[in-house]
Simulated assay, not measured.
Amino acid sequence: MTIVPTGSAGRPTTPSDQGVGPLLRAWREQRRVSQLELALRAGSSARHVSFVETGRSRPSEEMVLRLAEHLDVPVRERNALLLAAGYAPRYPETPLDDPSMDALREGVERLIQGYEPYPALVMNATYDVMAANRGISMLLDGVPESLLVPPLNAMRLTLHPEGLAPRIQNLRAWRGHLLEQMERQIALRRSEPLRALYEEVAAYPLPPGTPDDKPGEEAGAEASAYFALPMRIEHEGRVLSFISSVSTFNTPMDVTVAELAIETFLPADPATVKYLHALLS
């Protein structure tokens, strides 16, 4: 599946009417860092950080970026901080179909194709699927066309009662894992589109007949058999088990690249390995 460009994944990068100070204070409080601790990390003083937050002092462009880095502010929101402080955005947001992204697209597509026969996909910050390999296409067999209209969304495909959800054997545990993952991303990015997606998928009803988790028994069995929570999914009468891993780009300098994630699904048992190699190799 070829990489498909989609719209902006985060909330608009706009300056605050109140200036950069309240934005920095909100990020600092969200990260639970004191003014003194932030000042020490950034090589400044608690007095200067206080003056910046209250608007008594206008930080330099370098200081805005330094504080944002030590607060682990996402790249998109660093642009918002710069705008609020009266500076130009530092990080571009280049569409994936731009010629300058050719090397990135080709490299990512080679990576996920090289992972075959195991499933792998590329997502943006709101879990829209930008590219996927044959392993993912295999898992989507039987999903209604209405859910496969681009842009595909990994969370909708997985949790919708007409999507993969009826085939996931440990749906309650896997659903809980995915919703917790989204909650962590919302806390990190403060993205309104991501929050809207969370509210949508969290409201999906469980498919009829979804078994209850068995306290102790099933959880204990999974804990002893696997090193991480697996997704156990039925495919053509067989139950396949996967452990997922998510990778991001190190030190991205572009908003688009910063919000890309590559999720790969590692077979969690020998039977899954054998079945995938026989089916897709």
Rank of each mutant, 00 (worst) to 15 (best):
Leu96Gln: 11
Ser281Val: 09
Gln113Trp: 07
Glu183Met: 11
Asp269Gly: 00
Glu61Trp: 00
Trp174Glu: 11
His48Arg: 13
Leu171Glu: 10
Glu236Arg: 12
Leu96Trp: 10
Arg238Gln: 15
Ser244Glu: 10
Pro12Leu: 12
Arg175Tyr: 06
Glu106Ala: 06
Glu263His: 03
Leu197Ser: 03
Asp141Ser: 14
Ala88Ile: 05
Leu179Lys: 07
Gly107Tyr: 02
Met1Ser: 12
Arg28Trp: 05
Pro207Gly: 09
Gly43Tyr: 13
Arg28Cys: 00
Ile186Asp: 15
Asp128Met: 08
Asn124Pro: 01
Tyr127Thr: 08
Ala219Arg: 02
Glu192Asn: 00
Asn153Thr: 03
Arg172Phe: 06
Tyr226Leu: 12
Ala187Gly: 12
Ile136Gln: 12
Leu276Trp: 03
Val108Gln: 03
Val64Asn: 02
Ser146Cys: 02
Arg28Asp: 00
Asp141Gly: 05
Leu188Trp: 13
Ala26Pro: 01
Tyr115Cys: 04
Arg167Cys: 08
Phe227Gly: 11
Ser50Tyr: 08
Met63Val: 08
Ala85Tyr: 01
Ala219Tyr: 03
Val143Cys: 04
Gln30Arg: 15
Pro252His: 11
Ser100Tyr: 01
Val255Arg: 04
Ala187Met: 07
Pro99Cys: 08
Ala120Pro: 04
Ala26Gln: 14
Asn124Ile: 09
Leu104Cys: 02
Pro15Lys: 12
Tyr198Met: 06
Lys214Phe: 00
Leu260Trp: 07
Ser34Met: 06
Pro267His: 01
Leu206Met: 07
Met231Ile: 14
Met1Thr: 03
Val143Leu: 08
Arg105Ile: 15
Pro270Thr: 07
Ser146Glu: 15
Glu77Leu: 04
Phe227Gln: 10
Ala131Glu: 07
His235Val: 11
Gly209Leu: 05
Arg90Ala: 15
Pro270Asn: 00
Pro193Phe: 02
Asp98Cys: 06
Tyr204Glu: 13
Tyr118Ala: 04
Arg238Glu: 15
Gln30Val: 02
Arg172Asp: 09
Gly19His: 10
Ser8Glu: 13
Gln181Ala: 13
Val257Phe: 05
Met138Ile: 06
Pro74Asp: 10
Arg189Ala: 14
Gly216Ile: 02
Pro12Ala: 15
Pro89Lys: 10
